[in-house]
Amino acid sequence: MSDTSELLHTPLHALHLELGARMVPFAGYSMPVQYPMGLMQEHLHTRNAAGLFDVSHMGQLRLVGEDAAAAFETLMPVDVVGLGINKQRYGLLLNEEGGIIDDLMFVNRGEDIFVIVNGACKHSDLAHIKASIGSLCHIDAQFDRALLALQGPQAVTALQRLLPGVENSVFMTGAAFEWAGGDLYVTRSGYTGEDGFEISLPANIATDFARALLAQPEVKPVGLGARNSLRLEAGLCLYGQDIDTTTTPVQAGLNWAMQKVRRTGGARAGGFPGAERVLAQLDGTDPLMKKRVGLIAQERIPVREHVELQSLDGTVIGEVTSGLLGPNIDKPVAMGYVSPEHATMGTRINAIVRGKTVPMEISAMPFVPNRYFRG
């Protein structure tokens, strides 16, 4: 979209402009990539205090009806039926080849299954879910609601002043709150590797709530640029870059997201799109051709997406999907896919950056320790 007038605006658009944000097109929206503080300082502030992100471009859905959990479970290799009230889980919509249509978060709120999907995929996700299970439950798209993420070790200190009681929640749980006459739903989650919260709220109070948060001494506004560097340091996939319809959960190293009840034996094992391929990859009967790995450059040269990866003898073995200079680790970090025989921790390989060979080492992820609050 070259004409920015075609771009959609989140409810916080005017506030971003007032705060001096540099706006860029993202997922069809005009979004803040950074504020005057700059990407590096926004990243470090989030790691040390609390950063406020506008993620209202993402899609919010409600699945309603007594069969909603069972119906949703047929679309993913994930335990939906067994999820407790106000508990949250990471999910993966798959196609018939086991490729990832989208990754998402969902909460069992008792009265509904509340789902948050990626902004660029939300309309296609909605169509896919309606076509697949629309006869089994009511699907309510809430694309007009705002979504804020407050991330960092001091997020809880700031948020509890506005929403007393929010400090009682733990990682991957949610609770309902009321503020200025609006209904909020807050989960203790996020995509930075830090403790933090995601806050779903009506659009008409979003700017006032964001201002109230920004008035707290711990909180600064943070844009998409630092959101990307934070999630990469945390070893988290970006949909459309690190995972897509050509990658399976097993290739992506997301085995942890597929609970045992959906993988082995029992009435609820399998039964999701691409199950035959995914389960065969899990048990080794369908050998992997590629595996997602973490990479640390041995020289101070950032290695970015689409850079070719080679073995030490010059054979092409894969490609980088995300990469940048990690502000906290203070080294160039990346993730990408390599052939399984080169995926062992400590293996040395080369990235080819503008014709220059950059030595890389296969590394564990996350690159910086996650600090989720588990109680």
Rank of each mutant, 00 (worst) to 15 (best):
L238S: 11
D283R: 04
R262H: 06
G235A: 05
P273M: 15
D242S: 13
P287I: 11
G284C: 07
G235P: 02
M258I: 12
V278W: 14
G265K: 09
P287K: 07
R263S: 07
L279S: 08
R292D: 04
A252H: 04
V278P: 03
G271M: 09
G265R: 12
R277G: 03
Q241E: 15
T245G: 10
Q259L: 13
W256G: 00
R262M: 06
I296E: 12
R263W: 01
P287Y: 04
I243L: 02
L288H: 05
K290Y: 12
V250C: 08
R262V: 02
L238T: 14
T247D: 02
A297S: 10
Q241F: 14
G274K: 14
P287W: 03
Q251K: 10
L279F: 04
A257H: 05
A275W: 10
G284Q: 11
T247I: 07
Q251T: 09
Q241M: 14
A297I: 03
T285F: 14
V250F: 08
L238C: 05
R262L: 06
V293E: 01
L236I: 12
E299F: 08
T247F: 07
M258Q: 13
P249D: 08
G265P: 01
V293H: 02
D283V: 03
P249Y: 04
P249R: 02
E276R: 14
L288P: 10
L238K: 13
Q259P: 00
W256A: 12
V261G: 03
G266H: 05
L236K: 04
R262S: 05
G253I: 08
L279E: 05
T246H: 13
G265S: 15
G265Q: 06
K291E: 01
T246R: 11
A297N: 02
L295S: 01
I243S: 06
F272G: 07
K290R: 12
R277I: 15
T264P: 00
E299Y: 05
I296C: 04
T245V: 13
Y239S: 02
K260T: 15
Y239G: 01
D286I: 04
G235W: 02
M258H: 06
Q298N: 07
G265M: 07
D244R: 14
G265D: 12
G271W: 08
Y239R: 01
A252R: 03
A280I: 08
F272S: 11
A267W: 08
G271S: 08
C237Y: 06
G270L: 14
A280G: 14
D283E: 12
A257L: 08
P249E: 07
P273I: 11
Q241N: 15
A280D: 10
R292F: 02
N255W: 06
Q259F: 07
G253Q: 04
A297Y: 09
C237N: 13
E276D: 12
G274H: 05
F272Y: 15
M289Q: 08
K291S: 11
K290G: 03
Q259I: 01
Q281T: 08
V261M: 02
L254S: 06
A257R: 15
G235D: 01
Q298W: 00
